[in-house]
Amino acid sequence: MTARTPVGVAVALGLVAGTAFLSRVPLSLRGPDESSLRLSWRLDPVSVASCRPRTEEELARLPTHMRTPTVCSGGTLPYSLTVAVDGRELIRDTVVASGARADRPMYVFRELGLDPGPRALDVAYLPLSGGGAQLPPGAPSLEWRGTVTAISGRVVLVTLDTAGRSLEVR
């Protein structure tokens, strides 16, 4: 125990306290008046492929392990997504199925800043039929129109309802 021991202990305590403080610094990562609009849902893709059975000749030309009975061409139906807040269009986009072969589920995941207060919201997620062709049966069309109240620090979430048939706001 030397005269410097108390100073040494105090410095050590200070260093540990400083390190401990650094592990709990209060930090604010958003402004005081920030809220957000989040769109998030996922749907199975609607197939627009036309399929026909393979002919005997076609099958014979293929290796044994590749002899699938039908051959398809086409893909999945693209969708248009439009979002307007207070009459101002903020998103107009085309959504296609995910995956390298575009045969995986379609998803929407967007986030926009929103000023707090009541806002008129218009969301439309509609199938795109190329050149006025008839839409396949069962292709869902989703729309939501109404007023939402954006609260500071909160997210307005537009998603599918529990049945997965229409949009709802949470």
């Binding site: 592990s23 610094v25 930090l27 958003r30 957000s36 620090g153 909160r154």
Partner: peptide, 23 residues
């Protein structure tokens, strides 16, 4: 709360020093 924007949080500067820069 996944439907809240995190406000003022006790934050670890040592392990999360990069967060304010990367966001």
């Amino acid at each position: 709360d996944l439907l809240a924007l995190p406000g003022r949080v006790p934050f670890d500067v040592l392990y999360g020093f990069w967060l304010p820069f990367t966001r």
